[in-house]
Amino acid sequence: MTRNAMIDEWYPVGLASQLDAHGRKTALMGEPIEVRLGEDGNAEVTGGNGRVLPACIRYGHVWASLGDPQKPLFAIPEADQPGRRLVDVGVVRVRCSPLRAVENFLDIAHFPFVHTDILGAEPHTEVQNYKVEIREDEDEVWATQVQFYQPQAAKSAEGGITTQYMYRVPAPTCSILYKTCPPRPGEWDVITLFVQPLAEDLCDVWPWMALFDDETPMTDLIHFQQTIFVQDRSILENQIPGLLPLDPGMEIPTRADLTSVAYRRWLKRHGYTYGAQLVAQ
């Protein structure tokens, strides 16, 4: 069996704000790990056999890798822009493939049916054409020129607007969404989904946001995003097959699924197959 390429990737393993010397036991790709605050003020993450894992603190979270990361953690330049509110949404565990969690985040077509009256509403169900590419230089999946009618696109949105979106996948279990920012036209709100793979069919999801919104109380921002994600959770736990199918014979995608198609192709190309089904059964 070949070594899974996902071993060398970075994964979120906890909230930086909840890091303490006592430590927290969790897991990464089936291996028990422990995350604690080191004496030097940095995060200290140890693997199942006590070995020290590469770790860093970024975007409100502690990140670690089981292997030997070939690059530093992906950049989110907007996260360092002054004036943004950084929102730790908190963990939600989902009994699903970590890749399924990311793929669902990339999908727009389900908005009117799962996030009814918030991110979508009937009869505005059409997903208009958008552009998808695998950017070779950055080695990332990007979807741009995405737009969708939304009754309440963000906590700061008053009434329905047509929202512009860009989606970005910089790592196999992380996605970043750039979205129309109602109080500051010209800027993008940043909403991320950082997924910690516990097992091939179990993950801890750590949503995080960097928003221009000086009005809304922090708790309201957290609750808005938790509402959206927990609406998805029951759907994610009932998808069949549980693992993300990478065999093109398994499903027939439509135009609205272009981002998912590119994501699956990119995963397959890199051998990012932890949580994937390679041959249709």
């Binding site: 009937e122 009869p123 059409e126 938790q226 509402t227 959206i228 927990v230 609406q231 959770r233 029951s234």
Partner: peptide
Amino acid sequence: MPGIHRLHELKPEPVLEGGE
């Protein structure tokens, strides 16, 4: 509430607007 879905099938049939 999140996790408890409304009964979609009991909603009135959606009315398509002109052009859609």
